[in-house]
């Protein structure tokens, strides 16, 4: 099956600084791919290149025709000078109306209890749940989730990933996650990409336990602490 998104030797400079260095990977339909890496490793830049908000300096990005991409950003820069309740927020995020297929997200976001509350009065977790639910209810073919569970408690995180897996199975959704939570990544991803400007390692999460390259890559981006002998120029 042809990939939904394919990066071929993609590099991105900002001014003269190399942020993304010769990156290649594929996103397959119905798979959860997670990008892990330290701050400033180029994760959000890669997400923005998939969205078409940044152009690569070198290399090629192939995106399947007519692909509908949803995006839930890491930073919820909501401006609370505007009066807006949760129901109005959902109407904006899901302009086509809520489909029964994904209506379980309504319960996840606790929508019935918060629908009349102004979003400025909601907690970070409640707001993040609404944005995640709204993004998924819009029925994208590919969803990009940047640190989707950073404001959620452990129970809500587990509930979210369970729902995400369920939705991808029923709708064929492809998921591209950016996360710092290694435990959750290993448990819920089909493919993991470790990045530090360049791609350190790509593989199945199960490989991490046995594969030395994978261990070294994780070590390089700060997840495991142990010595290794390869060097980097940046």
């Amino acid at each position: 099956m042809s990939p939904v998104v394919e990066f071929s030797s993609v590099s991105k400079y900002f001014d003269s600084k190399l942020l993304v260095d010769n990156v290649s990977f594929k996103l397959q339909q119905r798979e959860i791919t997670t990008l892990i890496g330290q701050n400033g490793a180029g994760k959000t830049t890669i997400a923005k290149m998939i969205l078409g908000l940044e152009k690569p300096t070198q290399g090629q990005i192939r995106i399947k025709d007519n692909l509908k991409i949803g995006y839930a950003p890491q930073k919820l820069d909501f401006n609370f000078n505007m009066p807006l309740n949760a129901e109005a927020l959902m109407n904006i995020l899901v302009p086509g109306g809520i489909d029964k297929e994904v209506s379980e997200l309504i319960n996840f976001a606790d929508f019935d209890n918060v629908r009349k509350i102004d979003i400025s009065e909601l907690s970070g977790g409640q707001l993040q749940k609404l944005v995640l639910a709204g993004t998924l209810m819009d029925k994208p073919d590919l969803v990009i989730l940047d640190e989707p569970t950073q404001y959620l408690d452990v129970t809500s995180q587990q509930e979210f990933y369970k729902l995400l897996k369920q939705i991808k199975e029923t709708t064929g959704l492809t998921v591209f996650l950016i996360s710092h939570d290694l435990f959750t990544v290993m448990k819920n991803s089909d493919q993991v990409i470790c990045i530090n400007g360049h791609v350190c390692c790509i593989g199945k999460p199960n490989d991490a336990g046995q594969n030395l390259d994978f261990k070294n890559a994780l070590s390089e981006i700060g997840f495991y602490v142990h010595s290794h002998d390869h060097r980097h120029n940046h």
Partner: peptide
């Protein structure tokens, strides 16, 4: 109007749409 409200909510989400 709709684009303005979405842009004020989140530039990132607006741009992605």
């Amino acid at each position: 109007y709709k684009d303005l409200v979405l842009m004020i909510l989140s530039k990132d989400i607006a741009e992605s749409r």
